[in-house]
Design a protein around this nucleic acid. Structure first.
Length: 361
DNA sequence: CGAGTTTGACCCGCGC
DNA sequence: GCGCGGGTCAAACTCG
């Protein structure tokens, strides 16, 4: 086996950080799913060290807000029933495609869920929220998800314990894996990033465990797993076939540990605004099904002001203990959980359509 | 030498 | 039931 790797293509992140797209055409025109790191200020040097914080923020969001299982509650609005209305004017198709894919994915989950539940319960977003987030009490990575989404999604199969997941991992397909026990999926959170760097550094340490060619894309999809012991968080990274500058990252699960400051310190994890300053430059546009609420692309900007400390403090559910304090602090505090759902992050992150459906139902 | 990456093979779920 | 594609494993390999 000639395992020689073309060093060149191994990764293109050699390049500096992401591209500073001030104008960010894609983002602007498109309702969203891209998050643009306008400034890779990050640590000034490290190639891939872009707006790590931004990422983290996002992650944080995910865990807090979305965690409840975005994807669970996501109602993939989708195209199936209601065709994406007005095609985004200048949005690139690729975005749509990606969104589409993501939505399809969500759709499946939702369908399952609905089937299981037997009905489209509007509550979709409701219940799970709280539970999800705070489970991490247990070192078991799966803990998180286990409770939440899976419960929501696959619950049925769910009988298994988290532990199984661990074991699962090892014995997974190697052997007699219990068949009846469907593999459980943790809540996933996907978003697109405009960056030339494939693997965005979010402060956590990841280990690549696989790579696969993506069907309709010349670019491969990489699979990463958090290297922290006990943490089963996974990350999937793929580049948009249409626009190589767009990277679709999908996180699965929740970290059961604080963000390990990488040696490079890139994480910029210092709570201080100075650090954030760098990140502050980064603005994110979380995935938003434009056709749903294409009114205004929700732009998540991590700015110093973000210090907005958790206004939502009340909603403890939003605070994930497993999260680095600073992250929690800087978390963009939505006015309220509810509002958040409607106009806040969820709106961006969750295909609004889904939410709509849920509501209407 | 340990940690991380590459890559072919394998398993599984899903759609047809 | 079959084939396809996604996801994961693990041996081989690279790198610091």
């Amino acid at each position: 086996m000639e395992k020689k790797k073309p060093e060149g293509e191994k990764r293109e992140n050699s390049m500096a950080n992401l591209r500073f797209s001030d104008e960010n055409p894609a983002a602007s025109g498109f309702g969203g799913s891209i998050f643009d790191m306008a400034a890779g200020a990050c640590e000034g040097s490290g190639g891939d060290k872009w707006g790590t914080l931004g990422f983290m923020d996002l992650l944080g969001i995910h865990q807090d807000f979305a965690a409840p299982s975005l994807f669970d509650s996501f109602q993939p609005p989708i195209l199936s029933s209601s065709p994406p209305p007005p095609p985004p004017p200048s949005s690139s198709e690729l975005h749509q495609e990606i969104l589409h894919e993501l939505q399809l994915e969500n759709k499946q989950l939702i369908q399952k869920q609905q089937q299981l539940q037997g009905l489209p319960s509007p509550a979709s977003t409701v219940p799970e929220s709280s539970e999800v987030l705070n489970n991490p009490a247990t070192p078991n990575s799966s803990s998180i998800s286990s409770s939440s989404n899976e419960a929501a999604n696959d619950e049925q199969t769910k009988t298994g314990d988290d532990e199984e997941q661990d074991q699962d991992k090892t014995k997974k397909q190697l052997k007699p894996k219990k068949k009846n026990q469907k593999r459980q999926r943790e809540p996933r959170f996907a978003f697109m990033t405009k960056s030339e760097v494939d693997h965005l550094d979010d402060g956590y340490r990841w280990r690549k465990y696989g790579q696969k060619a993506v069907k309709n894309s010349p670019y491969p999809r990489s699979y990463y797993r958090c290297t922290s012991a006990g943490c089963g968080v996974k990350k999937r990274v793929e580049r948009s076939s249409d626009d190589p500058t767009v990277v679709v990252t999908t996180y699965e699960g929740q970290h059961t540990h604080p963000c390990p400051i990488t040696p490079r310190g890139s994480i910029g994890i210092s709570p201080d605004s100075s650090t954030f300053g760098a990140a502050s430059a980064a603005s994110f546009i979380v995935p938003q099904p434009q056709y749903l609420h294409q009114q205004q692309p929700y732009i998540y900007t991590s700015l110093p002001p973000l210090n907005i400390t958790t206004a939502t403090a009340t909603s403890s559910s939003f605070i994930n203990p497993s999260f680095p304090a600073f992250l929690q602090e800087r978390r963009v505090a939505p006015p309220s959980a509810s509002s958040l759902r409607d106009h806040g992050l969820l709106q961006d992150i969750v295909p609004s359509q889904m939410r709509n459906e849920a509501k209407e139902e």
